[in-house]
């Protein structure tokens, strides 16, 4: 019993450490990536290639005053940043990095991650509602309608995968795809010829769910100043910021596990954690690439995309997959 407890504690600490480290260094990666796309060097001052920038930023954020504006709903205002970071960390607990490296494998891992992911929109809602700021309020309204709109096609796509695998266990889903890239769900054309489209839908939904450009309407800075975190300073802002990057990591992990064969090598050789990391960082690079290339959509364009295109397509794919599974 106590051994399990120690195990869990160790796992949680490791998960927090991984999340925080990733969040911090993804900011660095993002800035370097932005620099790369914009023909400039990016951060260069602190340490070699600016590698000490994240700790310095962290110290700056932590030592700044946490301003609580007058008239805010204090409880909501304080809870919101925590709520932004906490589900992201909790989701790491059940993500398998390889066959054996997993903090706590659950047979309903997929369900758990999506349950926590839904809490992310609560953070946006609380922050926007509690800030007593019209920009923040508009942003939170946008954020919530966006989250609802994109959770539907995302979950339908996931149900397709679950139907194929017959399990909600992330480890089982990944193991099911082992053996080479032709086994991955993205190319599982025999199970459903629309699988690549499903992958695209899932990827777009991940972008939208994590509030990344071109769907970063919640914090559309040219319209809503800074959106739901307009009034946050210091670590309040820092937590939102880290939460965003932690969510990106989770989104990439999920995409990798569900569609890209998890820790499996593309050619069936030496499966292991390095393949997993390689895949998620490639996905993250794509996230960064998209962000620094595309302008932002409008809220109505975004909702139309979800309700009129993504949901019908994913529903169709669900029915098709179900039919094919029944027939063969």
């Amino acid at each position: 019993m106590s051994l399990t407890l120690i195990n869990v504690l160790f796992a949680v600490v490791a998960a927090i450490g991984f999340a925080a480290l990733n969040a911090a260094y993804l900011v660095w990666c993002e800035r370097k990536g932005a620099g790369f796309f914009q023909r400039r060097p990016g951060p260069m001052e602190n340490g070699p290639w600016g590698l000490l920038q994240p700790p310095v930023d962290g110290i700056k954020l932590m030592t700044k005053q946490l301003v609580i504006p007058g008239g805010v709903d204090k409880a909501l205002f304080m809870v919101a940043p925590v709520l932004a970071m906490f589900p992201a960390i909790m989701s790491f607990v059940t993500i398998p990095f390889s066959e054996n490296i997993v903090a706590q494998n659950m047979n309903i891992g997929v369900l758990m991650i999506f349950a926590f992911a839904s809490m992310g929109s609560m953070a946006i809602l609380f922050a926007g509602w509690g800030s007593r700021n019209k920009y923040a309020l508009m942003s939170s309204v946008r954020g919530v309608s966006q989250a609802i709109a994109y959770e539907v096609p995302m979950l339908i796509t996931v149900i397709t995968i679950v139907m194929i695998t017959g399990s909600m266990d992330l480890r089982a889903i990944a193991l099911d795809q082992s053996g080479g890239f032709w086994q991955w769900n993205i190319l599982a054309l025999t199970k459903s010829p629309l699988m690549p489209v499903s992958f695209l839908i899932f990827f777009v939904c991940t972008l939208a769910e994590t509030n990344r450009a071109p769907f970063d309407l919640g914090e559309a800075e040219s319209e809503l100043v800074a959106g739901f975190h307009t009034e946050y300073s210091s670590m309040g802002f820092g937590l939102f910021f880290m939460g965003e990057y932690a969510n990106i990591v989770i989104g990439s992990c999920l995409t990798t596990l569900l569609f890209l064969g998890g820790w499996g090598c593309p050619f069936g050789l030496f499966p292991g954690v390095w393949w997993f990391l390689l895949k998620i960082y490639l996905l993250i690079f794509t996230f960064i690439w998209i962000r620094w290339t595309f302008p932002r959509t409008t809220i109505y364009g975004l909702l139309n995309l979800s309700w009129k295109i993504l949901i019908p397509f994913s529903l169709f794919n669900l029915l098709l997959t179900a039919g094919l599974l029944k027939v063969f």
Binding site: A34, F37, Q38, A213, P214, D216, A220, E221, S222, W292, T293, F294, P295, R296
Partner: peptide, 8 residues
């Protein structure tokens, strides 16, 4: 373009 959310 920055008004439209594209930075590069």
């Amino acid at each position: 373009i920055m008004d439209l959310g594209g930075f590069t």
